[in-house]
Nucleic acid binder design. Structure first.
Length: 291
DNA sequence: TATCCGACCTGTTGGC
DNA sequence: TGCCAACAGGTCGGAT
């Protein structure tokens, strides 16, 4: 499941293997893969032809590649924006390699490197689209996405203040991409377990040291996953394994229902939560008092 | 305005 | 064996 560390591995792959290359041709094989490009697949392909890829950027789980126009203009330019959703992969493959079963978009380049960029996505929650940039160089449709905790400009104090003002619970807040980006269900559960916080803890009750500790654990778990995701990278494979990350072996909470807590040995529990699951230790992560 | 929650999508798994 | 329901979960937009 691509979360921030996996997306960062993909970004590094794009930076290395497609930056500076010019698009020759684009095939859109599934309309849902370009649904966020409101003008449709034909327009998407036509607009991309002839543009040169810049250096891939990332915020949270969004990736984008700034596009160099043939005729430079005064505005902030445009970008190819991508989101991997739950099962998306961006692959750099030798042209002629048999198509993947769930190949959705193919981008050919006008050089002699012999490779093409493929967007493969089983569940089609992800997609690619073209957007104008804000003056900050961000695709306009993701201007509302908060910085992620690995961004040097992430403001810990402002995050704590925002949490205190919210009338919600801590896991909901962690998954709210306008507060903090890049955290998904897996790393939220991991960071909460490390922080000994129950997922339904009201954000208004978090202390400043408590928020600092939580942020520290989020960063630790992401960096550890990034270190392991990075090891799988090779020249033609620009993604991680979407089905079972290498970080699986290191998980303390996610997916460990009925298994002993790595801290106290109490069987871990799973609770349905927001159409998904929350995993926690009933002893280390006490539910908040109600009433 | 802030918050909540269902829909979207498809392959896998488990129960009957 | 075959069928069906449940499950996985990031994001959006409608509902409250």
């Amino acid at each position: 499941m691509p979360e921030l560390p996996e997306v960062e591995v993909v970004r590094r792959g794009l930076e290395r293997w497609v930056a500076g290359r010019t698009v020759d041709d684009v095939e859109v094989l599934h309309p849902r893969a370009v649904r966020r490009h409101l003008a449709g697949g034909v327009d998407f392909a036509a607009r991309l032809r002839g543009l040169r890829f810049g250096t891939a950027m990332r915020r949270g789980k969004y990736l984008w590649v700034p596009l160099d126009e043939a005729v430079p203009s005064d505005d902030a330019g445009s970008s190819l924006l991508g989101h991997l959703g739950m099962s998306g992969q961006l692959l750099v493959r030798p042209a002629g390699t048999p198509d993947e079963k769930h190949l959705r978009i193919r981008v050919r380049f006008d050089d002699a490197l012999g490779t093409e960029l493929r967007f493969v996505d089983q569940r089609t929650f992800g997609g690619l689209s073209l957007h104008d940039n804000t003056p900050d160089g961000l695709p306009d449709v993701i201007a509302h996405i908060a910085r992620d905790p690995l961004d040097p400009a992430f403001d810990d104090v402002a995050f704590h203040t925002a949490l205190r003002l919210r009338r919600t619970t801590v896991k909901r807040a962690l998954l709210d991409q306008s507060l903090i980006s890049g955290v998904g269900n897996i790393y939220a559960d991991e960071a909460l377990w490390r922080s000994r916080l129950h997922y339904e803890r009201p954000t208004a009750t978090l202390t400043r040291p408590g928020t600092a500790e939580l942020l520290g654990h989020i960063r630790d778990v992401m960096r550890e996953a990034l270190d392991q995701g990075g090891t799988s990278f090779d020249s033609l494979y620009v993604n991680v394994n979407g089905e079972s990350g290498y970080f699986d072996r290191s998980l303390d909470a996610y997916g460990r229902e009925d298994e002993p807590c790595h801290r106290c040995g109490t069987p871990m529990r799973r609770r349905p939560w927001m159409n998904r699951s929350s995993y926690f230790c009933p002893r280390c992560q006490r539910p908040p008092r109600t009433g």
